[in-house]
Design a protein around this nucleic acid. Structure first.
Lengths: 155, 155
DNA sequence: CTGTGATGCGTGCATATACACGTATCATAA
DNA sequence: TTATGATACGTGTATATGCACGCATCACAG
């Protein structure tokens, strides 16, 4: 008889499997980043703001493939914590996001922790599998309809 | 020069890539299930309750690898909608979850929709990649520390 | 019977995520 | 200069997720 015990999760649903993987890997990164006080989602936003200079929310949303309105709220804690600056821009419609000094500091602390997790991940999972993963991500995003923001605008 | 345009998301963070994949595939399944009025997460819970008979919340949590307290709330809409029954049990601590008649009905409607998505997914992604995915999921869950509920109880 | 660890539940709090709407401003054609 | 589509934002609402805590009950050793 095969292992009839504990670790038996033969969920056939591809989606739920990806979601479970997402939860598990998120836990791993969050634990690694714990000393910095950042969640991996927040680390990601800060890193993108840092890398892609001052940008507005919509641009950041496109960059990370997140619903814009999700971003509006996800950025809130970061601004409250003084990690980012949300300044008005010449175009009164938009606002410019950039890292605050404190944000730079925290990122300096967090990056090594993230790199550890990242390195461990590459070693454990292996580059081949990671490439498959990246391929799948791209593929899936292609399959999914364009996000709400771009969909049915005034149709 | 390579494609310098639109679809360029070379996020190096393995975790964020999995999260993006999770969001994308969730959108696909949610759209497929839309006629039934279920989200894929809800479909999954109903399917598990249906398949694994009457069980309590903790057992279901272990089954789907979800935090128990998450489940407490995720089940709420399903009970409100009259899809599941949350009945007291002989042991007053626990409660028995089972599908209500309406739940069976809705699942009857939803299953073909889920199967469509599932089939499309298998075709598009390919069995090989899906197996890699399942392997990764198991691997990641092994790496992640045991969920909170089982961790440091009274330590 | 009584103490104690194990088990089962629910809540407060905080974050993540998306959709439906509504509003303001820009840019440009008419 | 004025209508109109495109662009940028924020809010209301609802679900998903997990952690820290606290409470009740069971099972069992003593």
């Amino acid at each position: 008889m095969a292992t009839k015990n504990s670790l038996q999760k033969p969920s056939v649903c591809v989606c739920m499997n990806v979601r479970r993987a997402s939860r598990a890997i998120t836990r791993i990164y969050d634990q690694a980043l714990e000393p910095s006080g950042l969640k991996v989602t927040q680390f990601s936003l800060l890193a993108n703001i840092d890398a892609h200079g001052p940008l507005n929310i919509s641009a950041l949303a496109r960059l990370v493939t997140l619903d814009r309105t999700t971003l509006v709220r996800n950025l809130r804690p970061l601004e409250s914590a003084g990690l980012i600056v949300n300044a008005p821009s010449s175009d009164p419609r938009e606002r410019q996001l950039s890292l605050a000094d404190k944000g730079l500091l925290v990122m300096g602390q967090a990056r090594p922790q993230w790199k550890d997790a990242q390195r461990k991940m590459r070693q454990t999972v292996g580059m081949e599998n990671l490439q498959v993963l990246d391929h799948l991500t791209t593929l899936l995003e292609g399959l999914a309809n364009i996000p709400a923001q771009e969909r049915g605008r005034h149709e």
